[in-house]
């Protein structure tokens, strides 16, 4: 049981390491500042492994430094060093100690692997979400509530979320670093399930982590963790009848040009991202961050205009037709639709 004693002695060191690493990165993005139990479990293993590995590095570096200083060949030295064949005891030592270190790391690893295998798919208390990856956006369907949305995943704080993930085209990988590790979205036949929860309310950044084409780096999304009441409210307003532009002519343009691929509430086709409550979203196209202060992006109206004027330059290789060139919309119509979408907020 010496190994476990050794393991316990590492604990204070891992705690200190945790404090140092916690200074790294944004709270809503960094692996090193976990905001939920799944990310916490990964981080604990990282701390344990980094501690062991730093110890190994210190030993190797010290021996190397000692040897390089002590056994330099001094000028004029002619005698031949003793030709040592090996040393059985030493060789056993540096075989057995790494083996012990591997065991110390392997036991909690295996435990955590099986814990992470609990996908909450049959848990009646878990919120079920179907995630579909598209080039280059994310679709979220709340199967129990009949609600579909895109880019902003709204979840009730503290509840387990049971995900079922697939892709509509190429492989993607669903990753919210501060909440959990990632998992790939595969085509039907190899559908993945996993689960995480976010105990604290807040907005977390998510990314696609599997190369999926030119705009792979722009396939970002947000996870909004809200209170139970807010979540219920959000579901209700998502299910409310669709709001269309007030100007009937603009509404017709919107219907004929946009709703051929997009949907608002019960109207339109959900081939592209759902636009219901677009004014309440955290970003436009996942990459133009909405921020009225301008510190971390631009006001939403400006972002929608940027996007609609030239989607290709914002997100190369995306499948949205150019509203002006391909759909024949005028600048006035584009501005009108932008204003409507920016104003389409949820309660």
């Amino acid at each position: 049981m010496i190994t476990w004693q050794g393991g316990k002695r590492l604990l204070p060191m891992t705690a200190a390491l945790g404090l140092i690493l916690a200074g790294c990165g944004r709270e809503d993005l960094s692996v090193l500042r976990p905001q939920g139990p799944a990310a916490e479990s990964s981080f604990d293993l990282m701390k344990l492994s980094i501690t062991i590995m730093i110890a190994v590095l210190l030993i190797v570096f010290s021996i190397a430094a000692y040897v390089l200083v002590k056994f330099r060949r001094k000028p004029g030295r002619r005698e031949i060093p003793v030709q040592v064949e090996g040393n059985f005891k030493l060789e056993v030592v540096w075989t057995v100690i790494p083996l012990i270190l591997v065991v110390i790391l392997a036991v909690p690893t295996v435990k955590a692997v099986f814990a992470a295998g609990n996908d909450h798919a049959d848990d009646p208390d878990a919120v079920k979400v179907k995630v579909t990856g598209h080039q280059y956006w994310w679709e979220f369907e709340y199967t129990d509530y009949g609600v579909k949305t895109a880019q902003d995943l709204v979840i009730p704080a503290g509840k387990d979320i049971a995900f079922e993930l697939r892709t509509a085209d190429v492989l993607h990988s669903f990753w919210v670093p501060s909440l959990s590790g990632k998992i790939d979205t595969n085509p039907d036949g190899t559908v993945n399930r996993f689960s995480f929860s976010a105990p604290n309310e807040g907005v977390y950044r998510g990314k696609c982590a599997e190369l999926c084409g030119p705009s792979h780096g722009f396939m970002e999304f947000k996870v909004k963790s809200v209170s139970e009441a807010e979540f219920e409210q959000w579901l209700a307003s998502m299910k409310a009848p669709a709001v269309l532009p007030e100007d009937p002519q603009l509404a017709e343009t919107f219907r004929s040009a946009c709703l051929r691929c997009h949907a608002v509430g019960d109207q339109g086709l959900a081939v592209g991202p759902d636009l219901t409550g677009f004014g309440s979203r955290e970003s436009v196209a996942g990459i133009l961050l909405n921020d009225d202060t301008g510190a971390d992006g631009a006001p939403i109206l400006e972002n929608i205009q940027t996007w609609l004027r030239d989607p290709e330059s914002v997100k190369p290789g995306n499948t949205m037709p150019d509203p002006k060139a391909d759909l024949g919309l005028t600048d006035a119509e584009i501005d009108g639709i932008a204003e409507y979408l920016a104003g389409y907020t949820l309660e």
């Binding site: 062991i52 590095l57 690893t109």
Partner: peptide
């Protein structure tokens, strides 16, 4: 050796869920 020790860190699957493709 530094590359080797990060290799062992990557070997731990639950930690790799975070490291992978980064």
């Amino acid at each position: 050796t530094m590359g080797g020790v990060t290799g062992v860190m990557l070997a731990s699957a639950p930690a790799d869920f975070q490291f992978h493709d980064t």
